[in-house]
Design a binder for these strands. Structure first.
Lengths: 336, 336
DNA sequence: ACTTGGCACTCGGATCAGGGGAGTGCCAGG
DNA sequence: CCTGGCACTCCCCTGATCCGAGTGCCAAGT
């Protein structure tokens, strides 16, 4: 009985604190929420919750603030994620439907997500390792120079200028093109790389050169850590802790490697992961929470997408938005 | 005689203020700079400069701060832009030389520029209107569906999935491809669009469909306003005015259209444009300066690139960095 | 065994006065 | 036209005071 009320108190505190950004006291609590008990009772509960580590007091004589542990309990005890309104769903659909290519999908998602959550949104580009080669194209730029274009199943395009060891006539170019496509098209990246590397030493130099460049392009780690970021302006709402919190985050947003570490491994689509404060991998961001999920085919997430914000954030709303956007993105990519 | 000294005083004030971010007084001035006059003399000069609108006092009894007009004079009277050190030049070269494609060049430039200037850097992608069509590629995805890939001279790649009104066999595809390339390859975008649109009604439906999609892709204004932004973390150094200055800027950095307006028309490569405070087109950014220049072939700039920062910035250094980076980017693009 | 009202206590934050100091303007003399 | 001197003006820092929200605890009530 009391146990239940304590959870209710914790929940109320979290909600109020998220809304007001100020430590919440016993009196205000009973007023704003329909708790049918006196402030004194709530005080006892709060003392107990503090004892167990779910709350803290900034000062001896101030209201209570949830700890990371408190948020964690709050999130875990969320019954169901509240579904988005019909209007929001429609907005998502219409916003994403106009996308013309992969870049566009990612850009729109990131913007959409940041607007829905009023937070910093991060969308990782589909991982190379999960995609297959759709086509390889060679365009002659000069007799000894060509442009190799690599098109992947996810819609990603890589291109490289290749200097040839010897001039190549059109016929040779066509032959080379079909040889490369024969080896790589339809294959998963890892296999395609292997196949290209195997294109033996017995082949003419030009083949080797081009195959190597393509294989390198495919294994380029740089392109495996591409992310899009949006809504950085929402950081301005961080309020205080400017130098200690906002600045490192702004820096991280440009360091994609750090950002990806912060986002963590792509989880299976459908499951929304919430990392609260110090639960994350980077000490500096101990007052930052991350809400992510994977997107792409069910058991085989292409990459993750999510939101980064202050520990004091609207978890239910954020989780709902992240999940919804992931779902739509998955569908869009499926169609293309 | 006094005229010259006044300029010297203004210059000294600008330098000190930029360095310390605090109003500068007469005594500190004569000490830190080798002015061979007394503080009283400097005070007279300052009073005159204030009279003419080059300086202001935050409070009756505080030091002086340059006005926009003061910065303007300072910038105009800069003798020569101080050249970068050899080390810096080397850094630029090595930083940009590793770029593999257009995206990479732009990304690296933006990062480089923000690091050199410790400011927010903005690089516009080469304008579509100045580039030519290098190649058009069609890849069959399904009998009635193909992927059209458009490769431009600047290295930009656009792709679209096209649903065909009728199935297309390989031979037709090859014919279609060469017809499209014949019409568009080598042409400036505007001409290519026209040529594609002309691909007459007498042609089979598939041709029309694909040609239209390509023409649309080329005239897509969305892609004409692409920019890359970097160094947003440097905004953290804005110090005070957080909500009034940093926030709108952060927002603008995501609104590429606004950002481009702020950057202004691409100026001829070689000329560095400085827009100080209220000289800019957007009232909200009246305490923000913009330093830009064009890049690309001499008289025919592809696009602009530059830096956005507080009016109180190191103009000589910033101008030098912007010019140097533009120069290198031009060279790199020329080679590719 | 909880809950409740009462009460003393704590402590942060707002408010205010006072003093120090940096900087100015002006004037009279070089 | 430059310079030293001097009175004056505010800004801002410091310390003291006060107020009130909020707590913890206790004793009484259900």
């Amino acid at each position: 009985m009391q146990e239940e009320r304590r959870i209710a108190v914790l929940r109320a505190i979290v909600q109020d604190y998220v809304a007001t950004e100020e430590p919440v006291g016993s009196k205000a609590l009973v007023e704003r929420h329909g708790l049918n008990v006196s402030p004194a009772t709530v005080r006892n509960d709060m003392a107990a919750l503090e004892e167990e580590g779910y709350l803290t007091q900034p000062h001896t004589s101030a209201g209570r603030v949830p700890t990371d542990k408190g948020y964690r309990l709050f999130v875990d005890r969320l019954g169901s994620v509240k579904p988005l309104s019909a209007a929001e769903k429609r907005a998502i659909a219409s916003f994403l439907d106009g996308a013309v290519d992969l870049d566009d999908v990612v850009t729109r998602s990131v913007r959409l997500l940041s607007q829905l959550t009023r937070q910093v949104a991060v969308v990782q580009y589909p991982t190379l390792s999960r995609s297959t080669v759709r086509h390889i194209e060679l365009v002659a730029l000069a007799p000894q120079r060509l442009l190799a274009v690599l098109i992947l199943s996810t819609g990603r395009v890589e291109q490289r200028v290749v200097e040839l060891p010897e001039p190549l006539v059109d016929d040779d170019l066509a032959r080379l093109r079909s040889r490369l496509n024969l080896a790589a098209t339809g294959e998963v990246i890892a296999d395609a790389v292997a196949a290209l590397r195997r294109l033996g030493p017995e082949q003419p130099d030009a083949t080797r050169t081009v195959a190597d460049v393509l294989a390198d392009a495919m294994s380029d780690h740089r392109s495996d850590s591409r992310v899009a970021v949006g809504g950085a302006a929402n950081l301005a709402r961080y309020g205080d802790h400017f130098d200690s919190a906002v600045r490192p985050l702004l820096e991280a947003l440009e360091e994609h490697v750090v950002l990806l570490k912060l986002m963590g491994e792509a989880t299976a689509a459908g499951t929304v992961t919430v990392r609260i404060g110090a639960e994350g991998p980077i000490e500096e961001f101990s007052s930052t929470s991350v809400v992510t999920t994977g997107y792409g085919p069910a058991q085989d997430a292409l990459a993750s997408l999510g939101v980064v914000g202050p520990t004091r954030m609207d978890y239910p709303g954020t989780m709902a938005a992240v999940r919804a956007v992931a779902r739509y993105v998955t569908r869009i990519l499926d169609e293309a």
